[in-house]
Write a protein that binds this DNA or RNA. Structure first.
Lengths: 229, 229
DNA sequence: ACATGATTGAAACATGTGTTTGAATCCGGC
DNA sequence: GCCGGATTCAAACACATGTTTCAATCATGT
């Protein structure tokens, strides 16, 4: 009756597989998860993954596309709220508000996994770009990035377009890497002898925001060549 | 006569393989290179890789350990020079000098590939930590990181140890990610419609340094909880 | 209760890829 | 000139892992 099981989001094994995939991808990365361990964790047969999702790549696409959408949605909401409030007060949104709105989608207590997953997606796309990572980046993330960069430009009139672009990407980089620190071997915690821990969300948030707001506040240097010292 | 070909750094095929590995790893990432394509590029038989290096992992270890050592060496030299000059002038090294010394090892015209390779190593360690990436990070990079953090602490007396640690890792993250942008699909160039290009080393250097120096210059907020808005 | 299509399960299949093999070849020293 | 180890080569091997098969089972509508 139902010809395509891939289009039945209500099927129980289907959501079991998705849940297991989300958990395992966050724990071990995409390449650290085999269809067999995935099926075992979901309590289904190995073939079920392909039966319900077509392929492992397709499953990853679906999981990560969802994560990307949730994150973008949350950041767009934050952005809209901030701009509405600023407009109501007859001013432009300021940098601190914007940076906080951006960071919030990665670092929030509600779904601590989604930040990790999103970070993993972006890193994975850098290390080993594939058709499905590229699709998510272009279809889900690029549009938001441009929208956010436009907001940043209004909030940072001391910078030209070029500089805002650079700093946006530097911001994303700093955030992704600090988030992914805990994915590997917890380098920061180890080097700081326990002083700094990215799993401490409040600390992470405070440090990130302080760092980034100051970085965006730096005066621009235009396209002029580096001045002699 | 020579029992272990793995310890003959002078053998011609050996260095051909190493050179090919360095080039291909920078172009396609470690996982994007098979022993077969590697051997083909080096003009040797497939078995030669294992004959001279034991295993692909061993080859990667050797290549990336070298890259890490070169980079650390260069940064330690920069650091020593800066601190000597500052001492001669009866002052402490300042943040701008230190940041520039750090960035320089990734972004220098002499060996444009080593920055890419180092970035790839770190990213790969985040996405898929393995014994050999961990070995390099711990044995080659951690010591330098602590040394550099100590220098930063002297240059930034307005920050406590915790904040310097955080910012060091945020700095590394921003740099690694901006460098790796060109490895994947050149996202920054695409989104900025050609305005920003990380392959433009002078621009990259200028933007990175401006961003990071300002970020380090931000006042610390201690360990106090976030002040109410 | 039956028929029919959806789902499950164990096993096999396909393939990419690191690695090893064993014979052939090269090369230096006696 | 020949011997022995070092090197090269094509081929085979090993094996992890994504995917497919096909029969067994389940569920549902009549």
């Amino acid at each position: 009756m139902c010809l395509n099981p891939a289009e039945r989001p209500d099927a129980a094994p289907r959501s079991a597989i998705r849940a297991a995939a989300e958990a395992l991808f966050a724990e071990n990365g995409i390449d650290g998860v085999t269809t067999r361990t995935l099926a075992e964790r979901a309590g289904v047969n190995t073939a079920a993954v392909n039966y319900y999702f077509g392929s492992k790549d397709n499953l990853a696409l679906e999981v990560f596309r969802d994560v990307a959408r949730r994150s973008v949605r949350r950041r767009l909401d934050n952005l809209a709220r901030i701009e509405a409030r600023a407009r109501a007060e007859g001013r432009a949104a300021d940098l601190a508000e914007l940076v906080e709105a951006f960071v919030d989608a990665y670092v929030n207590e509600d779904s601590p996994r989604s930040g990790l997953l999103l970070a993993h997606l972006v890193l994975r796309h850098r290390v080993r770009p594939t058709a499905w990572t590229r699709a998510i980046v272009r279809e889900e993330l690029d549009g938001f990035a441009l929208r956010f960069i436009a907001a940043l430009r209004r909030a940072a009139p001391h910078l030209d377009a070029r500089e805002v672009h650079w700093r946006y990407h530097l911001m994303v980089g700093a955030m992704i890497m600090i988030l992914s620190d805990q994915m590997a071997d917890g380098r920061m915690k180890r080097l700081s002898e326990g002083l700094c821990d990215p799993a401490d969300r409040a600390q992470l948030r405070r440090q990130l925001i302080g760092f980034l707001v100051a970085a965006f506040g730096a005066p621009g240097n235009g396209a002029r060549p580096e001045p002699a010292p």
